[in-house]
Simulated assay, not measured.
Amino acid sequence: MYEGALHLAPNVINHDGSIAIRLVQDPFCRHLVKRLRKPLVSTSANISGAPSPASFRDVSPEIRNGVDYVVEYRQDDETQARPSRIVRITKDGGLEIIRD
């Protein structure tokens, strides 16, 4: 999480003024961001308070049906993914582990 976000849509800024920035490793996602030459804005693939899905199969129908588009990529992949590590970068450059 990064504190002090500026010039972003209000719905992507947390109540404390911070934003989350994901550093993607997946080749498809990296290529998509590179081709768009813009950041992607997204929420998590779970309802707030629900467990993070470990694979596409675990994404709830409510989420799948509530989006504009679902990429047809790795939907049959059963490799169990771990939730992302979340680290807060403080204004003084310090790091605080939120989720490991």
Rank of each mutant, 00 (worst) to 15 (best):
V87I: 10
R57T: 09
S18G: 06
I63A: 03
I19G: 01
D92T: 09
Y2I: 14
D16E: 05
K34I: 01
E78C: 09
R35Y: 06
P10D: 11
E96L: 15
V24I: 13
R74G: 04
R22N: 13
R85A: 07
P61H: 02
Y2N: 01
S18L: 07
R22T: 09
H15Y: 08
D16S: 08
A50K: 07
R57D: 05
Y2C: 10
P39N: 10
S52G: 08
V41P: 00
R22K: 13
G94V: 15
R88P: 04
Y69P: 01
F28V: 08
P53C: 13
F28C: 02
V67W: 04
D16W: 03
V59N: 00
L6S: 08
Y73L: 05
S44T: 15
H7C: 11
V12A: 04
A5V: 10
L40C: 03
L32K: 03
D100Q: 08
K91W: 09
H15K: 13
Y2R: 05
D58T: 00
D92L: 15
R30I: 06
R82Q: 07
A20W: 02
A9Y: 07
V59L: 04
V24M: 01
I86K: 05
A81G: 04
R22W: 06
S48Y: 07
M1I: 12
V24G: 05
D77P: 01
V41L: 10
T90P: 12
P39L: 01
P27A: 07
V33A: 06
D77K: 04
E72C: 13
Q25M: 07
N65L: 09
I98L: 15
R64N: 14
Y2V: 14
E3H: 10
P39Q: 02
N14D: 15
I13A: 02
Q25G: 12
V71A: 10
A45D: 00
G4R: 03
P27W: 06
N65K: 14
Q80F: 10
R85I: 07
A54E: 05
I47R: 07
V70D: 09
H31K: 14
R85Q: 05
A20Y: 00
